[in-house]
């Protein structure tokens, strides 16, 4: 359940912005999570509801944008879609590919007041 740690990271990052950006309440948080990231989205949503209590984001909604898994296949010399880290290339069936997207864990944007 490292989703709790991730949520603490999210709340810390938001709290660090309050002074600098001058807001008193967070209404919405947009996250970008890669489809292959080591995160269980339901657990993340659950953890966020717990961790946000008594913080500036106590009533914040969580919006999760899933980013697709993408890789560069060395055999095919082109970008391919991958669903899992152990998927073969859909074009050549090989495993000689390097992940180029899909493991992101980012706080994209906040809506504040």
């Amino acid at each position: 359940m490292h989703e709790f740690s991730l949520c603490e990271g999210i709340i810390d990052a938001i709290t660090a912005q309050t002074c600098q950006q001058g807001f008193s309440r967070v209404r919405r948080v947009w996250l970008e999570i890669g489809a292959l990231a080591n995160v269980e989205l339901d657990a993340l949503r659950f953890a966020f509801e717990v961790v946000r209590e008594d913080t500036i984001a106590a009533s914040a909604e969580l919006d999760i944008i899933t980013l697709p898994g993408r890789a560069w296949c060395l055999n095919c010399a082109q970008t391919i879609a991958v669903g899992e880290l152990y998927d073969p290339c859909p074009l050549c069936g090989g495993y000689q590919w390097r992940l180029t997207g899909g493991n992101e864990m980012r706080i994209k944007e906040l809506e504040v007041e």
């Binding site: 810390d12 001058g22 864990m105 706080i107 994209k108 944007e109 906040l110 809506e111 504040v112």
Partner: peptide, 27 residues
């Protein structure tokens, strides 16, 4: 002492802030 206004004309003006920050940035 920083530039942003602390007193707003209306109480609940909402705005968006782009963060683009890794969740594990602190770690």
């Amino acid at each position: 002492d920083h530039a942003h206004p602390h007193q707003h004309d209306h109480a609940h003006d909402t705005r968006r802030i782009s963060l683009e920050q890794d969740i594990l940035a602190k770690n």
